[in-house]
Design a protein around this nucleic acid. Structure first.
Length: 313
DNA sequence: TTTATTTGACCCCA
DNA sequence: TGGGGTCAAATAAA
């Protein structure tokens, strides 16, 4: 068993190192004179490396897409209101239990903007708000979001967005579950153009708000109108990783192509910082943390989000 | 017309 | 029993 693990680890390190080298090469091609084909080729190679790396982590063994387990978690509830037969009740309970075991991690996202208005924190996924609650002891309401593809693809990823009491500029984003939808593996997630301006919470991002009513009235401006927004991931805190499905915490690797060619400087800075942090070549738990393996590690949205520091707590 | 958000009500669990 | 999480009807926006 040990040997298998060692071998896998070696293979993993090898793939990641290869990815690192390819990223360096890509870095050298982030010049207008370099062809797109070359870049795309390098990106595909990098992705291939990560695919292999993930495979060596027995990636393919788990994601028994929640779809099969929880397909339409509410399907039974649809057929009959909330409480039907005892059988359905138990199914309902199973759903709650299952959700309880989902991996969970929190990011603190600092949101600020040069314009005085604050815009959406685009983490590369499309979310749909399904609820908002006032939380006891919190000054700001908590927003509940789920993956847009919940019904279409049975993606159970959800996130909770809570504005920090201490610093309203900080959003505490708690992610739950891994994306099993196609967007989790597509390349261009982060470039998804501004998605719905309704990616809320952020809409409510007026720094003067201390009252929910005010926040809710503050109807967001479309992100496009907001201008340069900067959202910086400050910290990443993993929780509930003891959950049995720890292996379920790795979303497919996502990589933004957007900056290439268009935002070369940003891309270069980004890549450099990633390389400096030895991001590609490290097997540290930080890398393996769900949050860092999420596309959130690459918040290179059109909003020029920057990763300042990621710290596993 | 379609898609997303709001919001009151419901459910589970500590 | 109350707080947190979720649903789904109503509403708003595109």
């Amino acid at each position: 068993m040990e040997k298998t693990v060692d071998w896998e680890q070696t293979a993993l390190i090898s793939e990641l190192n290869q990815g690192k080298e390819l990223a360096k090469q890509l870095l050298n091609h982030l010049h207008p004179s370099s062809s797109n084909e070359t870049r795309e080729f390098l990106v595909s190679k990098i992705l291939s490396c990560y695919e292999k790396a993930l495979s060596s982590l027995n990636w393919g063994e788990q994601p028994k897409p929640m779809t099969s387990i929880l397909e339409s978690p509410r399907s039974f509830a649809n057929s009959s209101p909330r409480s039907a037969g005892s059988d359905q009740d138990s199914k309902h309970r199973d759903v709650y239990k299952k959700r309880k075991t989902l991996p969970r991690w929190t990011e603190q996202v600092k949101v600020c903007s040069g314009t005085g208005l604050e815009g959406p924190v685009d983490d590369g996924y499309s979310w749909r708000k399904y609820g908002q609650k006032d939380i006891l002891g919190a000054n700001f309401p908590r927003g509940y979001y789920r993956c847009t593809h919940r019904h279409g693809q049975g993606c159970l990823a959800t996130k909770l967005v809570q504005r920090s009491d201490e610093d309203p500029n900080i959003l505490e984003v708690t992610y739950r579950g891994r994306h099993t939808c196609s967007q989790s593996s597509r390349l261009n997630v982060a470039s998804a153009p501004l998605k719905s301006p309704r990616l809320t919470e952020n809409k409510n991002n007026h720094h003067h708000h201390h009252h929910h009513a005010q926040q809710q009235k503050l109807k967001e401006k479309p992100a496009q109108e907001i201008g340069c927004n900067v959202a910086a991931r400050l910290t990443v805190k993993t929780e509930g990783l003891e959950a049995r499905e720890e292996d379920d915490i790795f979303p497919s690797f996502s990589f933004s192509l957007t900056p290439i060619g268009s935002e070369n400087e940003d891309a270069i800075l980004f890549c450099e910082s990633m390389l400096e942090n030895n991001f590609m070549g490290s097997l540290s738990p930080t890398f393996l943390s769900p949050a860092t393996s999420d596309s959130n590690m690459f918040p290179m949205s059109p909003f020029s989000e920057e990763v300042l520091a990621i710290e596993k707590l």
